[in-house]
Amino acid sequence: MDALDKIDVAIADRLQQDGRLSNARLAEQLALSEASCWRRHKRLEESGVIEGYQAILNRRKLGGGVLAFVQLTCTQHSEEVTAEFENIIQACSRVLSCHNTTGEADFLLQVVAKDLDDYSRFVEQVLRKLPGVSSIRSNISLREMKATNRLPISELLVT
């Protein structure tokens, strides 16, 4: 896809704020024809700029009282061990995100659990059994001050 213009950025930004925004309403807000707005919107999806849509759920209201940030250090980095590690993490619904990082730890995970007992069981039954993992360090969130998936599009595209 070519570079995004101001209209593409505006479409992406508005859909990021409200993924349920209708094409008619979006076109009206941006002073575009519905056909033009729809074509741009589809192009953003097809190019992968827009990957999908989802509802933002309140984890606490759904029983997810504990949010943990887990640093994993590995001693084995072979292709086989790494592939098995990645497959297990991908399949684990409690792991909200996993990043291969620089610094002391090799991976940083964000994990949700019902309570501390539930998290403790997850550590014993899943994390301690991960291949190649030599160290697990958990930080439990005491208070969430900010949580968002919204990207600062305009700031990222400044050249």
Results as ranks from 00 to 15, higher is better:
N23A: 08
A27Q: 06
S78I: 14
G19Q: 10
I56V: 15
C98E: 05
R150M: 13
L57M: 08
S78Y: 14
V123R: 07
L44N: 10
Y53G: 02
T148A: 11
L116S: 00
N100Q: 13
I11Y: 04
K114N: 03
R60K: 08
R128S: 10
C92G: 01
N149A: 11
L26G: 11
D115E: 05
L151N: 05
A83R: 14
Q90P: 00
F107G: 02
R43F: 02
D5E: 10
L109Y: 03
F122Y: 02
R43S: 07
A3H: 07
T102F: 12
L26Q: 09
G19K: 14
G52C: 11
L72W: 01
S141C: 10
Q16L: 11
A35G: 10
G103A: 11
L156W: 14
L96R: 10
C92H: 05
L32Q: 09
C92T: 15
F122D: 00
L157D: 08
V70L: 01
T73Y: 01
H99W: 12
Q29K: 14
V9W: 02
D8H: 13
E79C: 05
L57G: 01
D2Y: 06
E51M: 14
E124Y: 02
H77P: 04
I89N: 00
L30D: 13
S154R: 15
A35W: 00
R121P: 00
S22A: 10
V9H: 03
A10T: 07
D115N: 13
T102D: 15
L62R: 10
R25K: 14
T75K: 06
A91V: 04
Q90C: 02
E34D: 06
K61N: 12
V158T: 15
G64N: 02
R137T: 02
V112A: 04
I11R: 00
G103I: 11
Y119T: 01
Q29A: 12
I153W: 12
E51D: 07
L21I: 15
C74P: 01
E155T: 12
G132L: 09
L127C: 05
A68E: 00
A68V: 01
L62C: 02
G65Y: 01
S93W: 00
N139I: 02
D106I: 09
Y53I: 08
A91R: 12
D115P: 01
N58T: 08
W38G: 00
I56P: 01
E34C: 03
E144Q: 12
V112N: 00
M1N: 07
Q71F: 08
N100F: 15
Q110H: 03
R59D: 00
E51F: 09
N58M: 06
A68L: 00
R60L: 07
Y119V: 01
E79Y: 13
S22M: 09
V81N: 07
L130C: 10
Y53F: 15
I7A: 04
E51K: 15
Q54Y: 13
S134C: 09
S154P: 06
E51Y: 09
N100D: 09
R150K: 13
Q76P: 01
Q54V: 09
K42R: 14
H99R: 09
S47K: 03
R20K: 15
R150T: 13
A147F: 07
W38A: 11
H77K: 15
L26H: 08
S33C: 03
V123L: 03
L62V: 03
C37M: 06
E84W: 01
N58L: 10
A147C: 08
